[in-house]
């Protein structure tokens, strides 16, 4: 057991997976010699050689398309898209190819690959380094979509994703790489070294896909969140002194309906929080699930707090980001309804 940042935890997961299974290969833009712009693959090329970890041309389509071919061959590629915002050229390969290969070939060919990508804002990255495109993946049959919120989960979920026999989209909230950012951008962030979730077991372990975690037990209202928003919701609950139960979804698809429903049935109220734009966002799916499954337990309408339906702005970053003040107001609205 040792304290690790999320970057170190991800690197550890890759290292362990590459050690345990020589079919695991890692590649992407700046991923090889340099070790990735966020340093998640640092040292892997030196340790495993250039045929296991290498740099690619700037072609997200090429990265994922080649990974599909490698996976069909029998390897287990874990590729990096430098920012989730750069994913779109690869979208056809993800949606029409990786996601459907098992189905359309009746299992003759499969695509056991992981596409890692840093997601979310809060780093003044503007519209091309800040997006949260998770709903574009959860809408696709055949994909699994994972968003860890801390180093412990990031390592265990990434190992589980690499070992999974279906394609997994692994979205890494970049604002959490170095510490549990709670949305108070004007305050220093506690480093993971001083946070209990920065405690990462050594060696191999998995966090199962499809299982949510209760981050904060409470009885007044359920908050459904993932990634950075888990800490924003925690801050909002503390600051409003509302006894919120915070569910960290961890895997968006397949989602953990059991945990979601059990919590909402207990509290009777639900606030859904994500950084992505609102309309047709994953929050809409969560709201519908709560309505379908918990209607007779609800004492208030489900409230959504999300990024606005605009491109991610640069200078107005903190007006866009659904911070603790907005989440706090939503908690109060859910309590007062």
């Amino acid at each position: 057991m040792s304290r690790r940042t999320m970057v170190e935890a991800i690197r550890d997961a890759l290292d362990i997976s590459m050690q345990r299974d020589e079919r695991v290969v890692v590649f992407g833009e700046d991923v090889g010699y340099f070790g990735g712009v966020f340093r998640c693959t640092q040292g892997l090329q030196q340790k495993f050689g250039a045929s296991r970890c290498f740099d690619t041309p700037i072609s997200e389509l090429g990265i994922v398309g080649a990974a599909v071919g490698m996976a069909a061959y029998g390897l287990r590629p874990c590729v990096e898209i430098q920012f989730a915002d750069y994913m779109y050229p690869a979208y056809d390969q993800i949606v029409s190819e990786a996601a459907r290969l098992r189905y359309r070939s009746n299992g003759q060919f499969t695509a056991p690959l992981v596409v890692r990508m840093p997601t979310g804002g809060g780093i003044f990255g503007g519209q091309t380094h800040s997006q949260s495109p998770e709903a574009l993946f959860t809408h696709v049959a055949g994909l699994k979509t994972v968003v860890p919120s801390n180093p412990h989960d990031a390592k265990g979920l990434l190992i589980a994703a690499i070992e999974d026999n279906d394609p997994v989209i692994f979205l890494e909230p970049k604002r959490l790489y170095n510490g549990p950012f709670d949305g108070h951008h004007d305050r220093p962030v506690t480093p993971w070294a001083k946070h209990p979730q920065g405690e990462v077991p050594d060696g191999h372990y998995t966090v199962p896909l499809g299982k949510a975690a209760i981050r904060r037990a409470g009885s007044a209202v359920t908050v459904l969140a993932y990634g950075t928003m888990v800490y924003v919701a925690e801050a909002a609950a503390t600051e409003t002194d509302i006894d919120a139960e915070i569910v960290d979804l961890r895997t968006l698809l397949p989602y953990d309906l059991e945990t979601i429903a059990a919590s909402v049935e207990k509290t009777g109220r639900c606030v859904v929080v994500h950084e992505a734009t609102m309309t047709s966002g994953f929050g809409a799916e969560l709201s519908a699930l709560v309505q379908e499954n918990c209607f007779y337990h609800l004492e208030a309408p489900v409230v959504r707090v999300t990024g606005w339906d605009t491109p991610y702005p640069h200078a107005q970053e903190w007006d866009y980001f659904p911070g603790p003040a907005r989440v706090g107001r939503a908690l109060k609205a859910a309590m007062e309804a």
Binding site: G65, A66, M70, Y73, Q93
Partner: peptide, 10 residues
């Protein structure tokens, strides 16, 4: 087409 290249790389 790119998948063929990926398979060959593998």
């Amino acid at each position: 087409y790119i998948q063929a290249v990926g398979w060959a790389m593998a």
